[in-house]
Nucleic acid binder design. Structure first.
Length: 520
RNA sequence: GAGGACGUAGCUCAGCUGGUAGAGCAGCGGACUUUUAAUCCGUAGGUCCGGGGUUCGAUCCCCCGCGUCCUCACCA
């Protein structure tokens, strides 16, 4: 390998006239053009060989003995590396320019000395480099007087000019709006952002590996659906020109996954986006990522075990001391304990403890709702009870202890099989962690007549804004008539899981590009 | 959808009772070959979110709009 520029310079590209270019950008254009005049391509090409060594890896290649030997005048045996990174700090010391480079693995310092650079123009390039530029550097690894491993550059090449001035090198980019709108800047300026987004990838990969290893098949079902079913939510509607019909973006994959159970796939999961036409807040983005999983010849308890092991498995990846001590991770002011077993509490029990009366006392429930400005007018009794439950009972759960709420009322669980011992209860369990609903679990309904009756009943309450189900999916009933094996099902909010495991209080911090209102 | 807070230099932020705007970093010029948010000297940089109103005068007070955040509602 030679130290020659990996790319030939080419002619300066004609640039559209900058009518009102910001002076800071104008200066950077000048610096870029000056580098061009030195014979460098400011938008370089791939370097020779296998490409640059990641910074963390380059750092580990430092050879102390070789460095010392060289300092005492012995032949130079120091490892030479080619690296690339974004310039995040720049200290021009006259005839010696220091830069801190950053890539996805970390930071590494380089130095360009007028004495030791391969040629004068390399040193001149260092003087023309701006914060935010991406550069390629090549040279031996040394340790400075103050002990920092540094690439002592023989060569330096531009890889990409940054015409946009970067945020404050110390304060960084803190304005949430700018962070979300300019994620590309946020990602390299704020290491915390990079950490969270890398964690998200790791979590999704771990979920896939864990489930695939446990014998589940990953499938993909329609995002565009003639009838958006499987959950209680307003869908987004879009137009399909070729068929002249409206389609909904899916609110849940459930009804399709169950068709696959009918078709004979016994253990399936899907990780994909759902779209719900509702408001935004700290816990809600209109599109969010959901894991949904079905297990034939299982039930609610089967999939609860899957969730518990899955969540614990993912939590363990972020535990400070893997394999030893309690498995706790911080979430806000809490230390959430992911150790076994997760808590379990019956819906009725939690309701009674929080409200002070039995949930079957519907008259009292209505009175209580009225007294506390909880929506109740025009709602069925059970929906009133559920309103009270969500308002007063859910918050009494310990946020630091993952807990399943079990034995939900059947009336608020339309796709769930009623409990065989008490048909007013549904075989459903919701996992709560950190004050958030993370994953519901169900023993699925596979009786087509019962399902059809529930659809019809839900449809009857159509004018009622709170009515949970709006559509009668005939094809789904037809599928159930073919015969669906008994099954357990669950859905797990991936974004919320990532929030928990990375200690982020806003869902927008775990989504690469959260929805923002367009600028005018 | 409702209420509250906020919007000032590229970034992070000050700005008193209404009197025409400041700092740090970044930039530019200069000094400096082992720096660490380098340092030192000098210097430039503004639609005070937009529009209207009150006032002799508005970054500041009032109204409307836009955007963000927080709380609530819907929802997972």
């Amino acid at each position: 390998m030679s130290a020659d520029p990996p790319i030939p310079p080419h002619e300066p590209a004609p640039r559209p006239s900058p009518q009102a270019t910001h002076p800071l950008e104008e200066q950077r254009r000048k610096n870029r053009d000056a580098a061009r005049a030195l014979g460098f391509d400011p938008y370089g090409r791939r370097p020779e060989g296998d490409g640059p060594t990641p910074l963390a890896q380059a750092l580990r290649l430092y050879d102390h003995a070789a460095d010392e030997a060289h300092k005492q005048g012995h032949p130079d045996a120091r490892p030479v590396v080619t690296i690339a990174g974004r310039v995040v700090l720049l200290r021009d010391n006259g005839k010696l320019v220091w830069m801190t480079l950053r890539d996805h693995t970390g930071d590494l310092q380089i130095a360009v000395s007028a004495r030791d650079a391969a040629d004068e123009r390399t040193f001149e390039l260092a003087k023309l480099t701006d914060l935010g530029d991406i550069v390629l550097a090549r040279g031996p690894l040394v340790r400075t007087r103050t002990g920092e491993v540094t690439v002592w550059c023989k060569s330096l090449w531009p890889a990409a000019k940054s015409l946009t001035p970067p945020p404050d090198k110390h304060a960084g980019l803190t304005d949430p709006e700018l962070r979300y709108r300019q994620r590309y800047t946020d990602m390299w300026v704020n290491p915390e952002t990079a950490r969270v987004l890398a964690a998200r990838s790791a979590i999704v990969a771990a979920v896939r590996a864990h489930l695939t290893g446990a014998g589940y098949t990953e499938v993909e079902t329609p995002m565009l659906q003639p009838l958006a079913g499987g959950a209680a939510a307003r869908p987004f509607v879009t137009r399909m020109n070729a068929l002249g019909i409206d389609l909904s973006l899916r609110i849940a994959p459930e009804l399709y996954l169950k068709r696959l159970l009918v078709g004979g796939l016994p253990r399936i999961f899907e990780i994909n986006r759902n779209f719900r036409n509702e408001g935004l807040d700290r816990r809600h983005n209109p599109e969010f990522t959901m894991l949904e999983l079905y297990h034939a010849f299982g039930d609610m308890h089967t999939v609860m075990e899957v969730t518990e092991s899955l969540v614990r498995h993912c939590a363990a990846m972020f535990a400070p001391a893997p394999g030893s001590g309690p498995l706790t991770l911080p979430f806000g002011d809490h230390a959430v304990d992911y150790g076994p077993p997760f808590g379990r509490v019956r819906y009725a029990e939690l309701f009674g403890a929080a409200l002070g009366f039995d949930m079957t006392d519907t008259a009292r429930a209505r009175a209580h709702a009225a007294a506390h400005h909880v929506p109740h007018q025009g709602l069925d009794d059970w929906l009133v009870v559920n309103q009270l439950f969500e308002r007063f009972a859910e918050p009494t759960l310990d946020p630091a202890r993952p807990t399943f709420i079990t034995h939900y009322p059947a009336a608020v669980s339309p796709l769930t099989r009623p409990n065989p011992d008490d048909p007013t209860l549904a075989d459903r369990a919701d996992l709560f962690i950190g004050g958030m609903e993370i994953a519901p679990h169900y023993t699925e309904l596979n009786d087509p007549d019962l399902q059809a009756a529930i659809f019809r009943q839900q449809l009857a309450g159509q004018d009622d804004e709170e009515s949970t189900f709006r559509t009668y999916d005939h094809d789904f009933i037809d599928a159930l008539k073919v015969g669906m094996p008994p099954a357990g099902g669950m859905g797990l909010g991936i974004d919320r899981l990532v929030m928990l495991l990375t200690n982020q209080r806003s869902i927008r911090d775990v989504i690469l590009f959260p929805l923002m209102r367009p600028l005018a």
